[in-house]
Amino acid sequence: MSKHHHGHDHHDHDHHHDNHFTDMEARVKALETVLTEKGLIDPAAIDAIVETYETKIGPRNGARVVAKAWVDPEFADLLKRDATAAIASLGYTGRQGEHMRAVFNTADTHNLVVCTLCSCYPWSVLGLPPVWYKAPPYRSRAVIDPRGVLAEFGLTLSDETRIRVWDSTAELRYLVVPERPAGTDGLGEEQLADLVTRDAMIGTGLALSVEALR
């Protein structure tokens, strides 16, 4: 990041460090390439298997961050001002030193994050994105018609709710802080974290209700 010597709009600078594969990531992609070429595997079938384990991949630290923000106003305030520091204060650091920004849902604003096309998606915080989320048509449609896209995923927002779409950049990734569900006053942080789904943290869903957990 040392190459950024002036203010810019995140698009026209040196892209050298946007993406990087570790040795193991590249090795697995190499196996996938050759096995696909030989007709031994089909990427769609692999995606389908991975999808069944989607919730078992990565630490999903974001759920704990959100739960803490719900119970601790001081932490919520820090999260709002400096999400990177707030997340790091819980001992969670992204593999690539992700710069995070937390966007808070309110009664009249809903936040939605797009962009998981490249390796910058902070899966260690949010969990693995769903397969459909990575599809280019989703990305463009989410920007043009977020209300329609959300409705398709079963999230119908009232016409009064403003929807803000955040397109993560190489420097900045987003975490949606959903609203705390009603009737959760008696729950501790651990139980609250169980209500925070991956979908809630990318904005394609809301936090679960207490009833949903039972």
Partner: peptide, 13 residues
Amino acid sequence: VFAEPWQASAFAM
């Protein structure tokens, strides 16, 4: 349980 996405891909393959 997978710590990183590539591990799930390797398992699935």
